[in-house]
């Protein structure tokens, strides 16, 4: 360690402040729309269930928050063997 580093060394408080500011900016954003993902999940599930029988576990809905935009990812797996029960009824 350079001898000058001893004098230059600052406390850890600035690091704490920076980490907190970043984290809380993210947490506050997701707090404003707390259940958006689960609401979307339920509604998407309801729409699909009208036509195809899908297990809850095969539907993945997630939201990634970026700097200016957010990405909504919906991944639905439909088993090939499952017939369309509703369509068959008509």
């Amino acid at each position: 360690m350079n001898l000058l580093d001893i004098f230059k060394r600052r406390g850890s408080a600035p690091v704490a402040r920076e980490r907190l500011q970043l984290l809380l900016a993210y947490e506050r954003r997701s707090r404003n729309q707390p259940d958006l993902v689960s609401v979307l999940r339920e509604e998407i599930m309801a729409v699909i269930a009208r036509h195809v029988q899908v297990d809850q576990d095969f539907l993945q809905v997630s939201m990634d928050h970026g700097e200016t935009t957010s990405r909504l990812e919906i991944d639905i797996q439909i088993p090939n063997k499952v017939a369309m029960p509703m369509a068959a009824a008509f």
């Binding site: 600052r10 850890s12 408080a13 600035p14 402040r17 907190l20 500011q21 809380l24």
Partner: peptide, 16 residues
Amino acid sequence: RAARGEMLSIDDVLEI
């Protein structure tokens, strides 16, 4: 500890 910069300052806490 605040003087040594080891603890969040009051200004930091209030600003955050």
